[in-house]
Design a protein around this nucleic acid. Sequence first.
RNA 1: GGGAGCGUGCCGGAAUUGGUAGACGGACUCGACUCAAAAUCGAGCGCCUUCGGGCAUGUGGGUUCGAGUCCCACCGCUCCCACCA
Length: 897
Amino acid sequence: MWHHRGVGPRARNPLLPFPPVTEPSRYRPQEIEAQWQAHWREQRADRTEQSGPAEPYYALSMFPYPSGSLHMGHVRNYVITDVVARQQRMRGRRVLHPMGWDAFGLPAENAAIERGVDPAEWTERNIAQMRAQLQRLGLSIDWSREVTTCQPDYYRWTQWLFLQFWQAGLAYRKEATVNWDPLDQTVLANEQVDGEGRSWRSGALVEKRKLRQWFLQITAYADQLLEDLDQLEHWPERVRTMQANWIGRSTGAELTFPVVEADGSPTGESISVFTTRPDTLFGVTYLVLAPEHPLVPSLTSAEQRLAVEALCELVAAESEQQRTDEERPKRGVALGAWVRHPASGELIPLWIADYVLAEYGSGAVMGVPAHDQRDFLFARQHGLAIRQVIVPEGADPAAFTGAAWTEPGVLIHSGPFDGLTSEEGKQRILAEAEAAGWGRARVQYRLRDWLISRQRYWGCPIPMVHCPDCGDVPVPADQLPVLLPTGIALQGRGGSPLAQLEAWRTVACPSCGGPAQRETDTMDTFMCSSWYYLRYADPLNDQLPFGREAVDQWLPVDQYVGGIEHAILHLLYSRFFTKVLRDRGLLSFNEPFARLLTQGMVQGLTYRNPVNGKYVAPADVADVNDPRDPISGEPLTVSYDKMSKSKYNGVDPTSVIDRYGADTARMFILFKAPPEKDLEWDDADVEGQFRFLQRIWRLAETAKEQGIVLNPASKGEEPEAAAGVERADLQPAEKELRRAVHTAIQEVSSDLAGELQLNTAVSELMKLANAMGTHLANVRPAVAREAVHNLVLLLAPFAPHLAEELWHRLVDPSAPASSVHHQPWPQVEASALARDTIPLVIQVKGKVRGNLEVPADADASTLERLALESDVAAKWLEGQPPRRVIVVPGKLVNLVP
RNA sequence: GGGAGCGUGCCGGAAUUGGUAGACGGACUCGACUCAAAAUCGAGCGCCUUCGGGCAUGUGGGUUCGAGUCCCACCGCUCCCACCA
């Protein structure tokens, strides 16, 4: 073993004693991490204080699905939250930092079908495995609060909460056209179908089916969910925009057109349309219904019946994706029926067309070809009239561009409304409609109700009973939970497994006692995850899902961290739950998550042979600087992609911990990229991070060898006092080191406050280590001790094991475990940051021309004088006095000739 | 089509919010130590240069004493929504 002493050949301070020569120890993360984790566990160091004088702080990571193996995305998520939790603890807060398992879901059920294992056992095993992996990361999680959504003591309350929605009139069952995943054999919510019409889980193209399903009426909260986005100032703009788009609020009018016979006599029926452009009312030349509109059969004339039925059948057979393809010509057919224009009195033909959606608005649109691009194309194709009623302000009314004018303008050909602007026209026409009874103002949302039933086994049973006499009857709260039957054989796909369990299904009606049937659908797992963060506040409550006092104490969550993929799904549902539970009097806040960080993906180094398109494992690449296919020798392309087995680019967190330790993995994942950006995992860089921790270890060893730090008397001593040297007495190196220490305190503190800039926080630690490398050997013990002391404290949230070990080695060997993590967070000492002189930048006409060392407290006129007297001024001003001088005290002087 | 965000060295990324662009790290080059290598330590590292300096933050304009940062236009990339009436 090489002998290393000091940090480089440099002059020693003669004031210092010569260090004793001892064999330095090596940084062995595997040993110290296992040791400290065991101590922390024994002493239950991470337990949450449920009450006390300190302010509560809630740091939360999105809980994982227990797939069985931890991946890098999990590591990133939990490490970010752990840094926050640990620092808040040092800041004196009572911290709630829990973990749990989103444990219902299809993978367990599929494993059961494929391998005959019991889903509960499979899930249990995965949880045990992942918990063990997680614990190796050194996360300060209070495991006594662990929640598992598939256990009866949890899902009992999911059912109880479902009944709250039922009692509030917000849960209902209805027949509807729903998204059907043919691969997973279950329905899906709208939020769970991606932009390409594929299932979020299976990736299969979803089909439309008409089924009787359970819904939660999230649309009743659309307005609040949209408006309160403004309160979420600490959420990423992106997420708020996505939710606002998803909710999709449009203001406009609902206008009613009476249906008439061909001779103009009213039939008594009417068609309502929703429009955002009531100002274009006089441009309506037809009305068009969705093929699924309920009035279509009765309105169709005998002559048109065959054509109408043919189109309806054609449309019904198509997928949503085919149907909403904008490139395709719009198909439509006249019904052979008429409505009367409510303002002009004209007769207007009724049509059906595939471009009108039954689910949005009233399923009917007024056709204004001159001012809507879709209507324009449709009218031209089917020979319908195009009537221009809006002209751009100041334009010639006769000029027709050949395309729809969709911008606002001035009304023409609109009877009494001619000459108004679009905005005035909207208001006046709406007022007229309201007065005459054929219209009203209306707000329309894109958001649809949340479809929560799933035709699968491994989920929370919906606590309802269907009675032939009483209808839908809720299971009484004291009979909860409705237990999911266990030990049943799951065979293949098709049909809800619970529906096949005759004995389980058949029950007495809770209301009349007669024979009845249980609901056999289970809940969407997003139901379980919409309230887990509330349960953590009161995990053992067996009277309620949570006590009001407990949730009000801890929530809203101070810092929530998770993936962007939940921008709409989980984060919207949870907001909805919170608002409903608030209205039920179960909690007192409006929003569950005060601050949200959406962390970026962890991507793996990916090699691909561009010739045959095959991926190559990094281990098979001989030279990373010239990557070639190990078989053919062809050069490979290098990229960073989402980790996946098929690309051989996955990195197993456990193997990284085995090799370098958790602290290195933590530091690397924090340092490599800002938290919200995608991170390119590269094993070579991890090596570099490991070197940094070794460097800290050596710095500490150097200090220890020099006998300047280990000092039991310093126990409990304030870092400022630890300097123990009069400021006036400080030598230049000592001043510089102290400035580096307090700069680091200042920068790390601000990087951890508010926006989490963890990558720069780590780089500040590196700068401090660099400064210590330069100065540690040349300063007196008190100054060195202050530096080491604070480095260890600042390091504690990031590399908790190393910090703990160094604390015991250098500061207090007899301290109890976890004591470094309960030290107060260091405070900046302003005087340590102060400088006697500062470098003043001298600019000439805005360009930097030189530096001048000036007294830090020099006033503006002094700075101006010094700048003018400088060599720089002499050189660049060529003897001419400047026309203007701008002085920024403490920074620069700009001379403008 | 609508919306949001982003373009900075070879690479990941900094920049006190209008004040020294490239912090910190990686890669690379050179040197010290070593028989040698690794590790460690030190130095260098945007481009051009006649060594005075000049040019540089996607492109082109503008505001300003001063612009990566603010304004306008354009180009490119990423994400979300989209026949939503």
